[in-house]
């Protein structure tokens, strides 16, 4: 059964990633996985790296590898501000593995509890998520 559609806009610092009408948005906030339907109550949340899914219909699903960002729902519109969002086929697993290796190295050399360590841990989590998406393993 078709659900009511609502407008969604995805913006990154490099420009608009996607905008259109969808039945459901599936993503992850720092609190947990979230499925947004039309007429969701206003919310402001932080997003974590995950496979973002936009259900244009139940079977027509658009997927993105989504980095950290923010989700704002207001007046039945959803705005996702993400640092990066890539179509899974645009991901380069080799490049991601190299980035993951660098993050792991930094994590090892950083002092425990330092800002550098926190940053490296965040990078590591992001690249691991992206690698899983690139290799088709939906997370």
């Amino acid at each position: 059964m078709a659900r009511t559609k609502f407008p969604v806009e995805i913006l990154s610092p490099e420009g608009e990633v996607w905008s259109g009408e969808v039945e459901m948005v599936s993503t992850r906030t720092t609190v947990g996985s979230i499925g947004l339907l039309a007429n969701h109550e206003p919310v402001l949340a932080m997003l974590d790296p995950v496979e973002l899914r936009l259900y244009e219909t139940e079977s027509d699903v658009r997927r993105f590898a989504q980095g950290e960002g923010y989700l704002q729902v207001a007046g039945n519109r959803a705005l996702l501000l993400v640092e990066e969002a890539h179509a899974p086929e645009d991901l380069d697993a080799g490049d991601l593995r190299e980035r993951l290796r660098r993050a792991e190295q930094e994590l090892e050399s950083a002092e425990e509890g330092s800002e550098a360590a926190r940053t490296a841990a965040r990078d590591k989590r992001r690249w691991e998520t992206f690698i899983a998406i690139a290799e088709g393993g939906a997370s």
């Binding site: 906030t29 609190v31 109550e41 919310v43 402001l44 949340a45 932080m46 704002q72 207001a74 519109r77």
Partner: peptide, 23 residues
């Protein structure tokens, strides 16, 4: 003109201070 109309009713996940820490 895209400002949210009912700011008082916005739900923050997690709290606004946590969000600011990242913003």
């Amino acid at each position: 003109g895209e400002r949210p109309e009912h700011q008082a009713l916005v739900e923050y996940e997690p709290g606004p201070e946590e969000i600011l820490r990242r913003l």
